[in-house]
């Protein structure tokens, strides 16, 4: 591993783990998920909650933990910016990036690379009473 990446990781990893319980997927979308890390979801869902969320808002798998996506939804509504990003269709995880620095991957454009068969989607048109914000 290059020295620069090791240095960046020395800052990024403990910081993000302490604040967001970051799982180091290397392709951070925290701003799209109300600052709730979706990789903490036992099903690694990056596009919204599963159907198993308990009536009290806790996780289907861990009854004593709040659903990551309930927190993501609430968090996204509190964000001053990026509010609408929770509606973005997130591309499949690139598991090759696990453990690498998402900061470097962001700057290098590496985390923006989607599989060739993945179609980029235009921004979501919204209307009606369920407001998207932004």
């Amino acid at each position: 591993m290059r020295v620069i990446e090791r240095l960046v990781l020395a800052v990024e990893k403990p910081l993000k783990e302490a604040i967001w319980d970051c799982q180091m997927c290397g392709q951070c979308i925290l701003h799209s998920t109300g600052l709730s890390c979706p990789m903490r979801c036992p099903k690694n869902l990056r596009n919204g909650p599963c159907g198993g969320v308990r009536p009290d808002g806790n996780c289907e798998v861990y009854a004593d933990k709040r659903c990551v996506w309930v927190e993501a939804w609430e968090g996204s509504q509190r964000l001053p910016v990026f509010k609408s990003h929770i509606h973005h269709l997130q591309k499949p995880v690139d598991w090759q990036l696990q453990g690498t620095s998402s900061w470097i991957n962001l700057l290098s454009g590496r985390d923006g690379k989607a599989p060739l068969g993945w179609s980029p989607h235009p921004a979501l048109p919204q209307r009606g009473r369920v407001s998207e914000g932004e």
Binding site: P42, K43, N44, P92, V93, W95, W118
Partner: peptide
Amino acid sequence: RIYDIDSMQLLEVAAAMRDRGTYLSG
């Protein structure tokens, strides 16, 4: 548990196979 892709992404994959005639790899 696997969860390599999520259900939303699988919908997109199936639609791509149908509409564009490609695998996710392209």
